[in-house]
């Protein structure tokens, strides 16, 4: 009898769960807008920018205090998925500021949404920031040259792309796949714009002996490098500064190529459909302030877009490298066929 009762009550609990779950689901999906509907400005960015140790919360806190408003950050996870995230936001979830697109992804963003043109304030731009970095609808907020990073004592650093073909670098390089990673796409475009398309692919074919692995993301390839499986990885010129500041290690170095380095510029933009457009514009201007640029530089380990910010910091000591201007537009147009050819290389 007791057993029968127990069985019945467990059974009843189980089936009570069903209507309760359905009811909650219906209630939840019928709720429109945001839980934080009192937020004045909604900003979408990638994970490490939004995380507590990233620049987002620190910068946001100062902005909230100064303007007396409330910000809501949305984490798009991977920077490459920001555009898709925007496409899938439901009608009630408007985004005011999009932060974290780079020069290879802004064209895609322009296809998905319309963006507000921006009137730049009087700014002393960073002297080394390439002039073509300034766009009418996207404002650069940080940037950094890309480079191969190595650990002192583990190998002799290469001085040019050609040197990477040498036997001494056999099985040492950890790269990112251009189909899934933005730095990976930067690397591919770098080679192709430097050498031309056919010669570039032939170079990549020859490089296969030197490649340890091609990862899906920068974090995996950098992880392989950090754990000692790969001796060289494609990363940022500023990466060694992280190890110097956070790990007090001067062992990590960037290999300097006399022929030059590609660079990544990160942008902030305001969609035309913004809800609080004036405040969004104020936020973008705010990001260009020297004290805010300093925070972004220190927490994102990228160079500031405003001049003189890095003076007196480790960032002032990074090697002055030649930047390779390349037109991503023609390559972006042929991206599909270029990636097909990349696949066939079998790296």
């Amino acid at each position: 009898m007791v057993m029968e009762k127990q069985q019945t009550s467990t059974f009843a609990i189980l089936f009570a769960l069903l209507p309760i779950s359905l009811g909650l689901l219906i209630y939840w999906t019928s709720e429109s807008g945001s839980e934080n509907s009192n937020a004045d400005l909604t900003i979408i960015s990638y994970g490490s920018f939004v995380s507590s140790w990233g620049p987002g919360p620190a910068v946001g806190k100062i902005f909230e205090k100064e303007y007396g408003v409330k910000l809501q950050w949305i984490n798009a996870g991977d920077a490459g998925l920001i555009i898709e995230r925007l496409r899938f936001q439901n009608a009630n979830q408007s985004v005011d500021v999009v932060l974290g697109l780079d020069q290879l992804t802004i064209d895609g963003a322009r296809e998905v949404l319309e963006w507000r043109n921006f009137s730049y304030p009087e700014i002393l731009w960073h002297k080394r920031l390439p002039k073509d970095a300034l766009q009418r609808d996207f404002v650069p907020f940080d940037w950094g040259p890309l480079a191969f990073v190595y650990k002192k004592g583990q190998l002799e650093p290469p001085k040019s792309l050609e040197e990477l073909l040498s036997k001494k670098y056999q099985g040492t390089i950890s790269l990112q796949d251009p189909r899934t990673s933005t730095p990976g796409l930067q690397f591919l475009y770098w080679i192709l714009s430097e050498k031309g398309i056919d010669a570039g692919f032939s170079f990549l074919g020859n490089l296969s002996e030197s490649i340890h692995s091609v990862s899906t993301s920068w974090s995996t390839s950098y992880g392989l490098f950090k754990r000692g499986q790969a001796k060289l990885t494609f990363s940022y010129l500023t990466s060694p500064i992280y190890h110097m500041i956070e790990e007090e290690s001067g062992d990590y170095k960037a290999a300097i190529f006399a022929d030059g380095h590609p660079y990544q510029v990160e942008y902030v933009g305001i969609p035309e459909k913004c809800k609080n457009c004036d405040l969004a514009e104020a936020f973008v201007n705010f990001l260009l302030r020297p004290e805010i640029q300093k925070i972004i530089m220190a927490k994102n380990y990228m160079l500031p877009v405003v001049d003189q910010i890095e003076q007196g910091t480790e960032f002032a000591n990074i090697p002055k490298v030649r930047l390779i201007p390349f037109s991503a537009q023609s390559l972006t147009r042929d991206r599909r066929s270029l990636l097909e050819r990349w696949k066939k290389l079998g790296l």
């Binding site: 990638y46 994970g47 490490s48 939004v50 995380s51 507590s52 140790w53 990233g54 809501q72 950050w73 949305i74 984490n75 996870g77 998925l81 995230r85 993301s217 920068w218 974090s219 950098y222 992880g223 950090k226 754990r227 990466s239 992280y242 190890h243 956070e246 380990y301």
Partner: peptide, 22 residues
């Protein structure tokens, strides 16, 4: 994809990995 912040430990781990802190 579905979270709007690094709400869970797994998401924190992912964000740490993308900011050098393996």
């Amino acid at each position: 994809i579905v979270a709007d912040r690094p709400h869970t430990v797994a998401l924190v781990i992912q964000a740490l990995m993308t900011s050098y802190r393996l």
